[in-house]
């Protein structure tokens, strides 16, 4: 038996005593979480597609307000990904103030998304759309709509809290650049999911 500790190394190695991808545990863990969460969303999107094909699906969304509104939401969310990139970049350069600033910009984008989305939900609920009834046709429209966007919004809300924790901790030196990168991965993933939900739930249901 050797007395030497397994020396950690920053080089990628499959030989043991290091990381095969030269990443920390948290980053690899987040990638794996993203894979599994992608399957969770994938299952819902599959179920939605299955039911959409099997039913006479309504296309109730007017160009204004629904599509304009959801496009603005998309723009906000995508912009928040950009600010996140700046945040990660600052963090890797050791610029703590800059990182904090950009993460807070990201949080603002996320919050704006949640507010806009709640407004949109409110509007639809006023029109009579619920998970179990729909003024437009099959009640499954409401069921799938609220399930998909609801789960996504939950992810955004969790992301906002997660970002705030990291921004605060990074400023105080509790977290380092990799922690910022890891929260960035999560945030980009939440955006990416929206890039599936937006066309499949909104654009495909535009009134023509």
């Amino acid at each position: 038996m050797s007395d030497a500790h397994a020396e950690p190394t920053a080089e990628a190695t499959w030989q043991g005593g290091g990381s095969p991808f030269a990443v920390g545990h948290k980053k690899l863990g987040m990638w794996l979480f993203i894979v599994s969460d992608a399957l969770t969303f994938g299952a819902l999107l599959m179920a939605y597609s299955y039911l959409r094909v099997a039913n006479d699906w309504p296309t109730p969304f007017d160009f204004y307000p629904a599509i304009i509104f959801s496009s603005v939401m998309t723009l906000v969310l995508l912009s928040s990904s950009l600010t996140m990139v700046f945040g990660v970049s600052c963090a890797s350069k050791g610029d703590r103030a800059g990182t904090k600033k950009w993460i807070w910009a990201t949080i603002l984008g996320g919050l704006l998304f949640v507010v806009l989305h709640s407004y949109e939900w409110n509007h639809l609920i006023h029109e009579g759309l619920t998970p179990f009834s729909s003024p437009y046709g099959t009640p499954l429209f409401g069921a799938t709509f609220f399930t998909l966007t609801g789960l996504h919004m939950t992810h955004v809300a969790i992301g906002v809290v997660y970002l705030a924790v990291i921004a605060n901790g990074f400023g105080r030196g509790k977290y380092d650049a990799e922690d910022v990168e890891v929260v960035g991965l999560y945030w980009h993933f939440v955006d990416l999911v929206w890039m599936f939900i937006f066309p499949m739930v909104y654009l495909l249901s535009t009134k023509v």
Binding site: L32, V35, S36, D37, A38, L39, T40, F41, G42, A43, L44, A47, L51, P131, F132, P139, L140, A143, T144, T147
Partner: peptide, 25 residues
């Protein structure tokens, strides 16, 4: 497990909504 349980989680939530939320997935 990583790839399979996420799908069951989705399915379970949908079935729970059918039972409690009045949906008909």
């Amino acid at each position: 497990g990583l790839l399979a349980f996420g799908v069951l989680l989705s399915a379970g939530v949908l079935l729970l909504m059918d039972r409690l939320g009045g949906t008909s997935f």
